[in-house]
Nucleic acid binder design. Structure first.
Length: 803
RNA sequence: GCCUGAGUGGCGGAAUAGGUAGACGCACAGGACUUAAAAUCCUGCGAGUAUCAAAGCUCGUGUCGGUUCAAGUCCGACCUUAGGCACCA
């Protein structure tokens, strides 16, 4: 162990022994809750990317403590999940053990880097004491009608043998293994998240998420406002369609319905070409969602013969088609097709030789559809639309909707892309779903007092070929009695998705040891909310949405104090390899934080990761740059030799000192970590130019640097005989002292800098003007020209406009 | 296709409400100290042009226009690039 590591160890022990970072639930101080996403403890150990965001928020936590806040900065483990299970299958080690080992490694690494977590609140989502409450909350969802079983076509990964949520199957491939996803009918637990769509949208107003985060949420929820319209079928019956472009209703030349929807099943008895239709339905099922969403594959479909629909606006009979571009689970599962004004419909019409009727003028429908993106807001007018002809699109939209509403054949509705949350996984390494199936009573929830429902030890981790969880093989666990009638019953063998445990963990941190409730109302009221939550960009859509949904539900049943429990959400950029590529074993560009700590020390690693660039942006690793940060810390260390007694700041260092306090403080709170460090470098350089500095000067520099480099600063501070920085207060700057008396400003002639002048802060505009006009190079440049005006911006610039 | 970012030296990146573009750091070059190396210190470092040397001058923040006394910053069109969403009616 080198000298640096010894010093770092010394202070880490000091913090441990003194419980320096313990957050109190009964404090009179103002609360401040900083949260970094708890990691999945993978076998690879801590990534330098973790170090970046943890250091950033560690610095904020440390500063806030010094500013007198009771700071909660917790850490835990999101340890359920497929990777641990994959690892178990491969190596025949129980995930519990593998995860336990990984957690040990992560924790050791975090400690050597000196993060100021309150380790007394540590837990893992896999602890029965924790997942007991995850299960308990599931029961609340169930009891309030928010959890239900449904047989639905779901995304099925043939390799992982599991069902994937739409989110996990994004792009038609399994997020985990990249295998193409198939469609399979399965009975699944679902959470009625879609009923919270509007609330989740509105709730964003009660948060301080970064704009790009809010937009991510909004996009994911995917609200569209439109009209639902009834369509009569010739010879009886009707169905509904949803459209956002009711203004094009006169352009309907056919309807398209979803092959996986309910409507076609109802119509089946009347279909003339049953065989053809059934084949198409089967084909659609076989297609993975990859094929189905492939844009350039052409528009397949078959006509549903023997059934015609009536366009409600003009009574015209039009054909009905089956097309797999229409989704059974969005809107009504049926659409009106207006090929003149929708590219998708246009292509379908071309492929199947259907009429194209133009109803909005301004495009060239011979070539392609004239779509809403093209015509909206441009004053385009309707044609071929009876009494609506001549109206602008915007007028017609309203007038047609009104007319249809009056006739009671249409209503204004909203639709959301966000679906209900598929909550079942056919996996072993997850929270067991505390439900029991009884022949007599159906699905019955377990009694709350019987929780937790422990995950049994299994010998085989592989999912069964039928896609059931390995739990299904443990018959003495599966067979149980019905909590309702006492008869024989079977347990649910599916487990919860990985997102479950992470949807409420931030509440548990507020009261981590509570065995009466997931967290007490008092504790939640004291901490109020997560003041600042940081995580990866990849989690800003889903995890955040799930967590917000979970909280809103708990709020609605009176279990949490507010509807939104996360105030500010920011996300960090990735740390890339030095080749500007994502770090990966195969590319050989991975940096192990342990190596850096051993060679350069934790403080250097911390300073470097804060200095490397814009926190919200990706940044490549550079060992050279890291060395530069080591040099900076060495310089700070050497400054100790210049220290002389004195408990006041050196007079002429005062402006830069006060400026530095201000800049470091505001930059840290605005994610400007790199500029905060650069200010500290400037301050050190200013100290270095002096022959001597006072203890007060030095202590100030160390205090400002402490949040980022907590070990070395404590050591140096101790050496000059001051009490530990972690037990001291953050300095307060004096605004009036940040202003420098003398300043150099530029003098421009016609916007071009021609000279600089020194001005005094008290100089009047006249004095400055005069000074500027006396400059040699200014005189040269205005010679023989007429001065139109002289612009003086106090303390900034002089611009002389000449002709 | 839609929605977000981002384009600034050799490199990472600075530039609060438009006001000296390139802070701070890295790399590089020259010098000092040293028997030597490391460490440290000093100087230079956007391009071009001028000069014995300097001052100076011209150009320069992805491209083309515009607004302004003044544009990296504001407006309009576009290009490149990263990410998200995507047959969502």
């Amino acid at each position: 162990m080198n000298k640096i590591n010894e010093i770092e160890k010394k202070w880490q022990n000091y913090w441990d022994e003194h419980k320096t970072f313990k957050a109190l639930n009964d404090s009179k101080k103002k609360s401040f809750y900083v949260l970094v996403e708890f990691p999945y403890p993978s076998g690879a150990g801590l990534h330098v990317g973790h170090v970046r965001s943890y250091t950033a928020h560690d610095a904020i936590a440390r500063m806030k403590r010094m500013q007198g806040y009771n700071v909660l900065f917790p850490m835990g483990w999101d340890a359920f999940g497929a990777p641990a299970e994959e690892y178990a299958i491969k190596n025949h080690i129980h995930p519990k053990e593998a995860v336990g080992e990984n957690i040990k490694t992560f924790k050791r690494q975090m400690k050597t880097i000196g993060f100021s977590f309150d380790w007394d609140r540590e837990f893992s989502t896999t602890d029965p004491d924790y997942y007991k409450w995850t299960q308990w909350q599931f029961l609340q969802f169930y009891k309030h009608g928010m959890a239900y079983k449904d047989t639905i076509p779901v995304n099925w990964c043939p390799k992982c043998k599991t069902v994937l949520s739409n989110e996990d199957a994004a792009g038609g491939v399994c997020e985990r293994c990249g295998t193409e996803v198939e469609q399979k009918e399965k009975s699944q637990w679902m959470l009625k998240m879609s009923s919270y769509a509007e609330d989740l949208l509105n709730g964003l107003d009660d948060t301080d998420f970064a704009d790009r985060v809010k937009l991510g949420q909004i996009n994911w929820i995917g609200k569209s406002t439109g009209v639902e319209m009834d369509v009569e079928i010739v010879g009886g019956g009707s169905f509904q369609i949803f459209t956002t472009c009711i203004e094009t209703v006169f352009g309907i030349t056919f309807f398209v319905i979803a092959p996986d929807g309910k409507l076609i099943k109802e119509l089946m008895p009347r279909v003339e070409n049953k065989e053809e239709v059934l084949k198409y339905i089967e084909d659609t099922k076989k297609k993975s969602s990859m094929d189905r969403t492939e844009l350039n594959k052409g528009k397949t479909g078959v006509e549903v013969k023997g059934i015609k629909a009536i366009n409600p606006i003009n009574g015209k009979e039009v054909p009905i088609f089956l097309g797999d571009f229409v989704l059974g689970d969005y809107g009504t599962g049926a659409v009106m097709a207006v090929p003149a004004h929708d590219q998708r419909d246009w292509e379908y019409a071309k492929e199947h030789n259907l009429d194209i009727v133009e109803v909005i003028e301004g495009g060239n429908i011979e070539e392609k559809a004239f779509e809403k993106y093209d015509y909206l807001g441009k004053g385009c007018k309707l044609i071929n639309s009876n009494e609506f002809t001549g109206m602008t699109v915007e007028e017609a939209k309203e007038a047609i909707t009104k007319m249809l509403e009056e006739k009671k054949i249409a209503r204004r509705v909203n639709n959301y892309k966000m679906r209900d949350w598929i909550f079942s996984r056919q996996r072993f390494w997850g929270e067991p779903i505390p439900m029991v199936y009884c022949e007599h009573c159906g699905w019955v929830p377990m009694k709350e007092e019987d929780l937790p429902l422990l995950l049994p030890d299994v010998a085989e981790y592989e999912p069964t070929d039928t896609g059931e969880s390995p739990l299904a093989k443990i018959t003495d666990w599966v067979n149980t009695t019905c909590p309702n009638c006492g008869g024989p019953a079977k347990r649910e063998t599916d487990t919860m998705p990985n997102w479950a445990g992470s949807s409420w963990y931030f509440l548990r941190f507020m009261d981590a040891k509570n065995d009466k409730a997931f967290a007490s109302m008092d504790a939640m009221k004291y901490w109020k909310r997560v003041d600042w939550y940081n995580g990866g960009m990849e989690h800003t859509a889903r995890h955040l949405l799930y967590a917000r949904f979970w909280v809103q539900f708990l709020y609605n049943i009176g279990l949490v104090p507010s509807k939104e429990m996360i105030w500010k959400r920011v996300s960090h950029g990735m740390v890339l390899g030095s080749d500007n590529q994502k770090m990966s074993k195969s590319k050989g560009n991975v940096i192990n934080p342990d190596d850096i700590v051993n060679e350069y020390g934790a403080d250097t690693l911390r300073v470097y990761e804060m200095f490397m660039g814009d926190y919200t942006q990706d940044a490549p690793w550079s060992t050279d740059s890291l060395k530069g940060c080591k040099r900076f810390l060495d310089k700070v260390t050497r400054l100790k030799d210049k220290v002389v007694d004195g408990d006041e700041f050196t007079k002429d260092l005062e402006p830069i000192i006060h400026k530095s306090i201000k800049k470091v403080e505001t930059d840290l709170m605005n994610l400007g970590f790199n500029t905060a460090i650069s200010q500290l470098m400037i301050l050190s350089n200013a100290f270095d130019e002096k022959d001597t500095i006072t203890k007060a000067d030095y202590n100030l520099l160390l205090t400002l640097l402490n949040p980022v480099a907590p070990h070395i600063t404590e050591e140096l501070n101790e050496a000059i005989g001051y009490k530990p920085i972690c037990e001291s207060s953050w300095p307060v700057y004096d605004e009036s002292k940040t202003i420098e008396q003398e300043k150099e400003i530029a003098v421009q002639v016609n916007g071009k800098v021609r000279a600089t002048i020194k001005i005094n802060i008290d100089d009047s505009e006249e004095v400055i003007k005069e000074k500027a006009l006396q400059q040699e190079n200014v005189i040269k440049n205005i010679e023989g020209k007429e001065i139109v005006k002289v612009i003086v911006i106090q303390g900034r610039i002089v611009n002389i406009v000449v002709k």
